[in-house]
Amino acid sequence: MNNRVHISDNERLVALFGLAATRQKSNSASCPSDEKLSELIDNTLNSKQRTSLFRHLNQCSKCYQLWLETTDLLLEEKDLIEIVNLDHFRATAS
């Protein structure tokens, strides 16, 4: 079974071209703190801070991978938390 049904080869190539063309040099001197990354994951930053962190993630592979790794690990956890929050909301409401 071929699982690459959603992505065509040309699509991928133009995307990679676009990313390579707009790539800026990394600036690892200004890596965000772990807490700032956690705020990004929780979506509690304002728009300006968010854009600034996105810019950094696009430039710094180490931070991008840490963010991606944590996000991956938390994907299922977030679903669990939503269930717990919903249960709490229902219990409070009743």
Partner: peptide
């Protein structure tokens, strides 16, 4: 102790843990 309470502790700990597991 570096946690300043700006974000959720839970997520902060996950970032620390991901870094350390690497």
């Amino acid at each position: 102790r570096a946690w300043e309470g700006q974000g959720a502790f839970h997520t902060f700990l996950a970032v620390l843990t991901a870094r350390l597991m690497t």
